[in-house]
């Protein structure tokens, strides 16, 4: 278990409200961790997808999550982003916001961005428009009808597209991109959101080795000023990320530590090879 657990109190009283971006001053910050998950449990029609998952992530930290199919990786992401409500357990963001009480847009507004396993970009829109829609800023309908989002300078979008290597495709419909390019576009959209925490689900699935290496570099660069959680199966890629690794199994944490420590752990070896 992580040493951040030592900071965790026995009971948690602080909650975030859906509509206030800033926590009230008197709210006690219960943990210094950016993301604090404790004893999360989720059941779907009798199937226990999470069985007491606990995990903490520090500010600016990058973490790789590995684990076999059904380990609960995607369900964990769903709980963090508000797609699934856990049956019990605590999920705190920034020490004050109770993620189990917020819905997806409110959580996105707090500064948690997510890239999906299957790349989901807006296929009808151009690559540049996809970035435009992701840019941080007011999300209300009126703001988008009359507001600044209609007057965004091209340079801002171009800078992001350059970063993810899609500048040459800026005017193409996103539907025309290759699978790998869509993955990058989605990472670019994440960057445009400028979140405090990025959740990246299998970013290199379907990528060539060269693209995988480039993606690892890109993620390391992003991790310099953002906290990142990467879910991935590709061990070479995880190794290239050079970060702490958490192995999930059957909805709970099995092992945590450096990539070498985790991959040498006999429990992990058994889970991957033994069955």
């Amino acid at each position: 278990m992580s040493d951040a657990d030592l900071l965790a109190p026995v009971s948690v009283t602080a909650t975030g409200r859906p509509d206030d971006g800033h926590a009230p001053a008197q709210t006690r910050r219960v943990t210094d961790a950016l993301l604090y998950l404790d004893d999360l449990k989720v059941t779907f029609d009798g199937y226990r997808a999470l069985r007491g998952l606990s995990l903490t992530l520090d500010r600016g930290e990058m973490r790789a999550i590995i684990g076999p199919n059904g380990a609960g990786k995607t369900t964990m992401m769903d709980c963090i982003t508000g797609k699934t409500r856990p049956d019990t357990g605590t999920a705190l963001f920034d020490g004050t916001h109770d993620l189990t009480k917020l819905d997806e847009p409110a959580i996105a507004d707090l500064g948690i961005g997510r890239k999906f396993q299957k790349p989901t970009v807006f296929e009808s829109h151009t690559v540049a428009d996809n970035i435009l829609l992701a840019l941080k800023g007011p999300r209300s309908g009126l703001a988008s009808l009359f507001g600044w989002r209609n007057r965004v300078e091209a340079e801002r979008i171009d800078a992001l597209l350059t970063k993810v290597g899609l500048i040459a495709h800026r005017s193409r419909p996103a539907a025309d991109l290759s699978h790998g390019q869509k993955q990058w576009l989605e990472i670019g959209m994440l960057l445009a959101q400028d979140p405090k925490l990025l959740l990246v689900d299998e970013p290199v699935a379907g990528m060539t080795d060269a693209e995988t290496a480039e993606t690892a570099t890109l993620l390391r660069e992003i991790a310099r000023d953002h906290a990142v959680i990467v879910v991935e199966h590709d061990m070479h890629f995880v190794r290239a990320l050079q970060c702490r690794v958490t192995c999930l199994h059957e909805g709970a944490v099995l092992a945590e530590g450096s990539i070498d420590a985790v991959s040498a752990d006999p429990k992990v070896v058994e889970v991957y090879l033994g069955r």
Binding site: T81, K83, D103, E104, P105, A108, D109, G113, R114, F116, T120, V121, F122, E123, S124, H125, D129, L132, L133, A134, R139, G141, S144, L145, G147, R149, N150, M189, Q193
Partner: peptide, 20 residues
């Protein structure tokens, strides 16, 4: 931009939620 978001909602409603 409103219309672009509208089309985004049409094509991938849940994705727009994760964008806030």
């Amino acid at each position: 931009a409103y219309g672009k978001i509208l089309i985004a909602v049409r094509d991938a409603e849940s994705r727009t939620r994760f964008l806030g």
